[in-house]
Design a protein around this nucleic acid. Structure first.
Length: 233
DNA sequence: AATCTATCCAACCGCTCTCCA
DNA sequence: CTGGAGAGCGGTTGGATAGAT
């Protein structure tokens, strides 16, 4: 269709809302509801377009809005739903009471997208390293090492990302040296000359126990709080 | 202390969808 | 069926603030 922006009309205010404007909008909606957004600003005596009023109410002034940081559970839910639904922010928001699509979109772009990216990067680096180790050790194509891509369950992945994030915060606060995927891979290769991480992963694959494999990876990347807590093989 | 850079988030813009005459 | 009006959605922007140098 394509219409001219509603705010191009003369005299309509743009930009941040003042507390006075907020009060006018709140009291008007409390008394009259918001049946017609386009007519609302005129009736309420606001120099704003209806669209702006609607956005302000939905994203900020609504009484059921939950303010403050997102919980780990909420972040897990967003990651999980985003894997299923894509950028359907309104649909995701519908599953998170008190949160708006705009807020969720912002959190996604500023926090969660980065977490996922880091997670995938670590995962890929580790997989490449271990694939090489496996090839060298077994020299057999049917024994090529597992790939974490077998773990496709979005819920498990979401939990792992969040868990990794929690541990990252912990590591930073504890002044633990930065650990990357290659460190883990080398560490386990040294400690498991006879069996090796690829062998362990292979067992998961053969048994088809995706949950166990997921747990293994979560522990590998994020479970240890210190070097002494590294899993033994 | 001053300046620069990165991050966050409220708000805007433009498009699509839905309803109705 | 068609087209206009309003609502809703997702992408993007820009100002404020925090952190780094």
């Amino acid at each position: 269709m394509g219409r001219a922006p509603c705010c191009e009309k003369m005299g309509l205010k743009k930009g941040p809302w003042s507390s006075e404007e907020d009060q006018i909008l709140i009291s008007f909606i409390q008394q009259n509801g918001h049946g017609n957004w386009r007519a609302l600003p005129k009736l309420a005596g606001l120099l704003r377009c209806g669209k702006s009023c609607r956005l302000r109410w939905i994203n900020y002034l609504r009484p059921d809005i939950k303010r403050g940081n997102f919980s780990k559970e909420e972040e897990e839910t967003i990651i999980e739903l985003h894997q299923k639904l894509g950028n359907k922010w309104a649909a995701i928001a519908a599953k998170l009471p008190g949160r708006t699509d705009n807020e969720i979109k912002n959190v996604w772009h500023t926090h969660l997208k980065k977490k996922l990216k880091n997670y995938d990067q670590v995962k890929n680096e580790s997989n490449v390293k271990m694939q090489v180790e496996s090839e060298n050790r077994r020299n057999s194509p049917q024994h090529s090492t597992s790939e974490l891509s077998s773990v496709t369950d979005s819920s498990a992945k979401a939990k792992c990302v969040i868990k990794s994030e929690q541990n990252t915060e912990l590591s930073e606060s504890s002044k633990i040296p930065e650990i990357d995927a290659s460190f883990w891979s080398e560490e386990f290769t040294i400690n498991n000359q006879d069996k090796g991480v690829p062998g362990i992963i292979e067992e998961f694959q053969e048994s088809g126990n995706v949950d166990a494999e997921m747990d293994f990876w979560c522990n590998l990347f994020s479970g240890a709080e210190d070097f002494k807590d590294l899993p033994e093989f």
